[in-house]
Design a protein around this nucleic acid. Sequence first.
DNA 1: AAAAAAG
Length: 484
Amino acid sequence: MSFSELGLSPKVLAAVEASGYTAPTPIQAAAIPHVLARRDVLGIAQTGTGKTASFTLPMLTRLESGRARARMPRTLILEPTRELAAQVEENFTRYGQNHKLNMALLIGGVSFGDQDAKLTRGVDVLIATPGRLLDHFERGRLLLTGIEILVIDEADRMLDMGFIPDIERICKLIPPARQTLFFSATMPPEIQRLTEQFLRDPERIEVARPNTSSANITQLLVRASDDASEKRDALRRALRSQENFKNAIVFCNRKRDIGVVHKSLEKHGFNVAALHGDMDQRARMAALDRFKTGDVELLVASDVAARGLDIPDVSHVVNYDVPIHAEDYVHRIGRTGRAGKNGVSLTLVAPSDGKNLGAIEQLTGSKIAWQGDALEEDEMAAAGGRRGRARSGRRSEQPAKAERPAKAAKPAVREEKPSEARPKSRRPDKVAEQAAPKSRDTAPAAPYARNGEPAPREANEGRVVGLGDHVPAFLLKPVRLKRA
DNA sequence: AAAAAAG
């Protein structure tokens, strides 16, 4: 199979060839002809499968006819994070080198005016995160009525991040005559519903599932302590003990730990950059760039970097913390072992991580080996980990071999029970919005009560309120620092 | 127990 058989235009083929690619990946081979034929596509695939080029290449061919008008973009690509949006823009730049295309990247954290100026000039390709796109729309700076192709990428992650209402709204703003390309790594019921609502007779294309594509990643566990200082020490030893080490992304569960780990590694002589969502956008871009170019060998990051980021040559992924959600583990380690290369993932496991580790091993359907000394089950249990047995009832009563029949366990989790494993979005915003006013109605007596404690009302009793020496009760409450 | 995205 070669790219030339797929129906792409000569300009696009020349750019692909110039990039050094000869054969399409399975999703590219399957999707490109349908996109060119103006069919809706439902692609079940994660990044790393060549998913991005499966829509950018045929879109470029399609865009060769026609021209953009001011404020009326011709195509729209929605991405869940700013970095992914920027990455898609790079992809269009690379393969669109022979085209005279106008592009705009509408993401938060950067100047509004530059984006607006581009919209005024007219754009062929609009790449956006939902929030900033709607911001432009609400200010009346953008018309979505001219969109010919709509791409919704990483839909399941949009769901995790609470973007589904935004996505629904945007879909309704675009005329139904459009072509829709919809990509998701998994198909939970909410996503399924969305595809039924917004896709017309889609061509369904499914490629290798995320947790089966990690054959070229060597996964290892590393014994660590719950003590932060000892854990950083374990991290340094793990990093220094690696053979064939080029660079690594070090994932932390919490943003505040990223700063600490970053400083600590720097102090011990490592070349490090940090990346998380509270950094300003320029610093985020700069950190990613320094890592990509090899200026730094370590990137200490939050899960903002876990999914989809395509950095071709990452030799190691280190989980400084065991991820709280098992599927994040699969995404994190997928940052290494890309483009046919081999990769290594190291996961530091402290006693309290036992429970999360169990969920990961259940999802991937295999036990992960320890590098060096193992952390024993009873050590994890003593720290409150490995509580999974209370739910499953299997662990203590049955022999180890029968515990986890790998072939049976995987489909059960991946296919049959996604809704039961996590029934609702992790950000049930609507529920919270509806619940809040009710609780106000039922508890009007203590307006400044927090966390169930009554406000110190005695401070105001028998006084004239609002004048002279009156001080509102909430100002008299001692300030509590956040540290637990 | 977190993080992400509009300020």
